[in-house]
Simulated scan of single mutants.
Amino acid sequence: MTISHLNAYLLVTKARVTLEKWMTAQLKSAALTITQFRLLELLAKHGGTSPVQCSMRLGISSSAVTLVLDQLESRQLLTRARVPSDRRSLRVQLTQEGTNVHAQARAALQSSQMEAEERLPTTYFTSLNALLECLELLPGDRLSVVHKRHR
């Protein structure tokens, strides 16, 4: 069966909306938005980074990153500190509370994913993973270029 570009677009859009609703519901227990979780995930993976790197890696504007950093810092989930060797630069790092909240949110997402996988045939997830790997290799996307550059 051949799927037209329009149908593929509509299916991917539907999948994105469905995943966003699912993630939003799962992240409520940690009182996080998807963007906030993505930022915590980035900091957990890289052990701290600059706001500019956060913007590039998340594919959002620097003003959006500043807003999310402000929200998370007010909850004491991260700290921003000047880099000693360059006072113009900031380094963002998770606090212990940020690490705990990130772990709680990640566990909620993984638990829910495992429940979904138990209800659906394994072949669905195998096919989905193969498709996502193919999509990641497609050129022309600003985020994929940034993602490949920072691997």
Rank of each mutant, 00 (worst) to 15 (best):
M1W: 07
S4C: 04
Y9S: 08
L10H: 08
L11Y: 15
K14E: 11
T18G: 04
T18H: 08
T24S: 12
A25C: 07
K28Q: 14
L32P: 02
T35C: 02
T35H: 06
R38M: 13
L40S: 00
E41R: 09
E41F: 06
A44F: 12
K45M: 08
G47F: 07
G47W: 04
G48Y: 04
V52T: 11
Q53P: 07
Q53C: 05
R57A: 11
G59F: 01
G59R: 02
S61D: 09
S62W: 03
S62H: 10
A64G: 07
A64S: 15
A64P: 03
V65P: 05
V68W: 02
R75D: 06
T79H: 03
T79G: 01
R80V: 00
R88E: 04
L90I: 05
L90Q: 06
V92E: 00
G98D: 00
H102M: 05
A108G: 05
Q110S: 10
Q113Y: 13
Q113R: 11
Q113M: 13
A116T: 10
A116K: 10
R119Y: 01
T123V: 15
T126S: 10
S127R: 13
L128G: 06
A130S: 15
L132G: 12
L132M: 15
L135C: 10
L137W: 10
L138P: 04
L143I: 13
S144F: 15
S144T: 15
V146T: 14
R149L: 15
H150K: 09
